[in-house]
Nucleic acid binder design. Structure first.
Lengths: 206, 206
DNA sequence: CATCTTATTGATCATGTGATCAATAACCCA
DNA sequence: TGGGTTATTGATCACATGATCAATAAGATG
């Protein structure tokens, strides 16, 4: 019962094993949140001894931080790959909002919530959070600038608009994580705020 | 070194002791976040044996949830006591935003971040979070309705506007918790979004 | 002042955490 | 096929967590 009987794991190259463990840590975090990323948690899921996990990371704080980065950087790629299929800047912004507010992303949202909480006690994680937030902001700035160049948007300060856009999204998603009341149409203000902020006609985004 | 030499604590009535421990738990949480609210953490700060803390709460999950409620309900009272000094609805809304976006509230913001994270693994805490969020929403709805009654605001759906207002605030504050880049003017969109949403002239709030 | 109620404590348990290291065995290469 | 390199493991620390309970002593009551 206690020990999930486990054969000796296959002998992999350090690179392979390292990649395997990162992928496993990713799964663990998406299922149980960042607090589930423990030596024993990752090891048992990977079918490996806890000591092996410890062997491949300098510390658990570092593993948690790396796991956060893996998950959230992948998320950026996935989201923007989806968004990029839209032909116009306005369409891309609309798709971006819709994707970020979509249900079924609670696992990633929960990881972000864990990160904002745990980042206060894990310096490596806090640094990772800052890096990924900057990546997100830069990606949103690109969307805004594209729209401005195409003449569809008007933005005084694209950098600031991007930060505040992400703030709105993250706040609404944090709320929905624990409290679903009123969450159905919770994105309406996001659409309207962005239309207003970018000089779009009402209803242009949704 | 290990045991901070402690005399036997004064013998208090259950009500007094209970109140003392809640106040202590509050201080502990505001200093180290909700994860710092442990049997030993609260006990040592209160100058009391860990067993006594356990004696007064059915479980630690319950103590954490109660501590969250104490802190955040007090915060509602404090914020709205301040806001109520403004004579007009527009002034009250402006003061509300300014207060909520003010620095120096990181301790409470951190408690909220902890709650959104830990609420997924602590049912009592999740329930407390929902309750306090509802209280916040109701209080904001009052401000919006006041403005509508006074003819200063126009709101189709005050309930929804209140939720989305709180979403904006919480998102921006979560960001500022770990990432201060661009945080200085991070509230600008909040002001503009509310002006737009409530039919106020540009610049009416800030 | 003696007695009794009960708030408080110390000791202890079971559990979970990260970390370390000698011992092991899987795999590669000669 | 044998030997050597090293990925992997089991065992074990030290520590922190929540929880329980008999023993203690503070303070009220007579």
């Amino acid at each position: 019962m206690s020990t999930p009987d486990r054969r000796r794991a296959a002998r992999l190259s350090p690179d392979e094993r390292s990649a395997t463990l990162r992928a496993t840590a990713r799964e663990v975090a998406l299922e149980g949140g960042l607090p589930a990323v423990t030596l024993r948690g990752v090891a048992s899921r990977a079918g490996v001894a806890p000591a092996l996990v410890a062997h491949y990371e300098p510390s658990m704080d570092a593993l948690v931080a790396r796991t956060f980065s893996v998950i959230t950087l992948d998320e950026i790629d996935e989201v923007f790959a989806l968004v990029a299929t839209e032909p116009s800047p306005t369409g891309r912004l609309r798709a971006l909002i819709a994707t970020l507010l979509d249900d079924g992303r609670d696992d990633v949202t929960a990881v972000w919530a864990d990160a904002w909480s745990m980042g206060r006690r894990n310096a490596a994680l806090a640094e990772a959070v800052r890096e990924v937030m900057d990546r997100w902001q830069a990606a949103v700035v690109d969307v805004v600038r594209d729209g401005c160049d195409a003449g569809e948007f008007t933005a005084e300060d694209a950098e600031l608009v991007a930060w505040q856009f992400l703030g709105m999204i993250d706040g609404v998603n944090s709320h929905a994580l624990v409290h679903y009341g009123g969450a159905r149409d919770r994105g309406r203000l996001v659409y309207r705020a962005m239309e207003n902020e970018l000089g779009l006609p009402t209803g242009a985004l949704g």
